[in-house]
Amino acid sequence: MEAVIRVTDAVKSFRQTKLSTIRSPAEFFDFQRISRPTDFSQATQRISYNTRYYSGNYGLVVACLAVYAVITNPLLLISLGFLVGGFAAINKFAPEPMQVGDHVVTQKSLYTALFVIGLPLLWWASPIMTFFWLVGASSVLILTHASFVEPGVESEYAEVQDTV
């Protein structure tokens, strides 16, 4: 019961901190504020400000790309489903050792079999390549957006609030 309370508190905390920073799509995709930065210094300032200002939106971009990466890699989807489903099935249906013929099957032996089958399957699904694709695609999208969108008028007041 205490674990459920911790999970709900964590979800509430996540909702308050990250999801409250999501800007409206009209603001995030405001084509009127797009311009090329004049130099590297201005691009760096824009990236610094916009990554903080649009952090919730960028989190959604990364989440959408992660879902896309998993869906478009069927072997990765199957191997993750196999491992997660195996853990759930072992915890639900085999909490106690059971007798099968002459052998006693324990949770430990079921987990060992799950790992012996699931980890090579997961490795074959190339999760590392998927991870690096996700990092690269997210970085390109986020840095491009952050450097090309001019900060709004509120960015001038952000410096004043930081010093106060």
Rank of each mutant, 00 (worst) to 15 (best):
V70M: 08
V84T: 14
L143T: 11
S139C: 08
F148W: 15
L60Q: 07
T144A: 08
T72F: 07
S126T: 15
L122W: 01
V62A: 10
K92A: 09
F82S: 00
L141E: 09
V100K: 05
P95T: 02
N73G: 11
N91L: 08
F131H: 12
I142P: 04
S79G: 02
S109P: 12
L143R: 13
G136F: 13
P74F: 05
I142G: 02
T130S: 14
F115T: 03
E96W: 03
S138Q: 10
T72E: 15
I71Q: 12
I117S: 00
L75I: 14
A125T: 07
I90C: 08
N91T: 14
A125F: 03
A137L: 14
V116Y: 01
A66Q: 11
S139F: 15
L114V: 01
P120I: 04
V61G: 07
V135N: 14
T144R: 13
Q107W: 05
Y58D: 04
L65N: 09
P97S: 03
A146I: 06
V84K: 11
G85S: 08
T130L: 13
I78F: 06
V84C: 08
I78N: 03
N91D: 04
P127L: 07
Q99I: 01
I78D: 08
K92I: 12
T112D: 09
A146M: 02
G81S: 07
I90L: 05
P97Y: 00
S147K: 14
A113W: 03
W124T: 09
F87D: 06
L83Y: 00
F82D: 00
P120F: 10
G81R: 02
F82E: 02
A66P: 04
M98H: 12
F87E: 00
V105W: 00
I142W: 04
L60I: 05
A69T: 13
Q107M: 09
V61H: 14
F87R: 04
T106G: 13
P120R: 01
F87T: 00
G81W: 01
F93V: 04
I128Q: 15
W124N: 11
H103E: 09
L141W: 12
K108Q: 06
W124L: 15
A88L: 10
S139Q: 15
L134F: 15
A94M: 05
A137E: 15
A69S: 12
F115R: 01
A146V: 06
A125N: 07
